[in-house]
Computed example of a mutant assay.
Amino acid sequence: MEEWMSELRKQMMSLHPTKRGRHIKLLSELYSCCQTYPLEPALDTCEIEVSSKMRAARGGFAGLWRGLFLGKHEVGMKAPHFYVPDETAQRRVQRETGVWRRLKHPHVLPFIGWHTLGLVSYMISPWMKHGDAVDYLQTNPTVDPLPLLVQVAEGLSYLHNFQPELVVHGDLTGRNILISHTGDALIADFGQSELVVEGEPTSSSNSASWYLSGNIRWKAPEIFEPETKQQGRRTKETDIFAFGRVMLQFFTRQVPFAHILNDRDDKLKTIARRGDFPERPCAADVVARGLDDGMWQLMTECWDVNPGHRPSADNILLRLSSALEARNNADHSQG
C-alpha cells in the first residue's frame, strides 16, 4: 500500500499545483483506510497546512500547532521554539524523528512525516482530541486509570523489545502520554529517546544539556545530577522508574510529591537524589480508583534504588493485565 501511495505522490508532485486535487483526495481516502503515509520525501505545502496561528500546547523544547493534512485530517505540528538556535533545533528534530519514524504500535503516537515552512521544521502526527493524560484525567474524574496504564505498559513493552535496536523513551510522564478520540493512551514525545544495541546507544553525539534535561519528579536517582554523559544516560530501568511515577500520577491525578509546588525546590532535589518514595495515598477517591496493595507494591518495585531490581516492562504489563482481567471477572460475576 505504501509503495502505491508513494507512486501516487510522485505523480501528484509532477503535476501543476492547480491539478493535484484528485490525487490529494485519493491519498486522503487511502490514509483514512490504512492510517499510514510514505515518509519520503518531506510533506509538501499541498499536503499539509497550519490551520491555526495560535499555539495549541507548549513543551520545554517545542510547541504544538494544529494543522490540516490532505485537506481533511486534523494533525499536530510540533516545532522547536523560535529561540532555539537553528543548529540545535535541526539536531534535535533529526534525533527525534530518527527514532519516532521507525515505530508503529497501537499505543505509540504515529509519525506521519515532517514539513519545512520557511525556516521552521514541523514533525507531523495525528491530532489527539483529548490532549495529554494529565488534562484528560483531571477533566474526567470517573475515568478508570487501570486500562490506560495497561495500554501505556503495552507501548513501553513494545519500545523495550523493539528490534534490531531497543528504544529507551527517556522522558515518560503523564504529559507525554496522549489520549485519542476513542479514549486510548498513546506514548508520545521522543525527544529524549535513544536506540540501544546490546546495551550501547547508537549515538554518542548528544549534548550535555540533553543528558541533564527531564523533570526530576520522574527521574531515577542514578541519573540525577550526573558528572559524565555516561552517568546521565537513560536506560530501560530509568523508563521503568518513570512508569511507576506515571502510575501514581494516574491514580492520584497529581504529580509525584505534589505537596512541593516548585520543581526547583531544594527539598525536591534532595528527594530525587536519594530516590525517596512518595507517601502512599490513602484518600478515598484514590483507593476507589484501584490503588490497592498490589498496585502500590508494583510502584515501589519500579522505584527501587537498585536499577537491576526493577521489574521489566513485560512483567509490568503482565501484572497490570492480570489485575484488570481479575477485576473485570469480579464485576461480571457480581453483575
Rank of each mutant, 00 (worst) to 15 (best):
Q254L: 14
R253M: 07
Q249K: 02
D266A: 13
V255T: 11
K269C: 11
A258Q: 05
K269S: 13
P256E: 05
K267P: 04
T270H: 09
M247Y: 01
R264C: 09
I260C: 09
I260G: 10
D263H: 08
Q254Y: 11
I271E: 01
D266K: 11
F243K: 00
F251H: 08
R273N: 14
F250D: 00
I260F: 07
F243N: 02
K269P: 04
V246S: 01
M247F: 03
R245N: 09
Q249W: 03
Q249G: 00
R245L: 06
R245Q: 13
H259I: 06
K269T: 04
L248P: 00
D266Q: 12
R273V: 05
R273W: 14
D266S: 13
H259Y: 12
M247S: 01
R245V: 10
R245S: 15
F251S: 04
L268C: 07
K269V: 07
A272E: 02
F251L: 06
I260Y: 09
D265N: 14
N262C: 09
K267W: 09
A258I: 02
D266L: 12
F257Y: 14
T252A: 07
T252Q: 07
F243T: 04
T270E: 15
N262L: 08
K267Y: 12
D265E: 12
P256V: 03
R273K: 15
K267M: 14
I260A: 08
D266N: 10
R253N: 11
F251K: 03
L268E: 05
F257A: 05
Q254T: 12
F257W: 13
I260D: 10
L261Y: 10
R253T: 08
A272F: 05
A272H: 03
Q254R: 14
L268M: 09
H259M: 11
T252K: 06
I260E: 11
F251A: 03
F257P: 07
D263P: 13
Q254K: 14
R264G: 09
F251P: 03
R273Q: 15
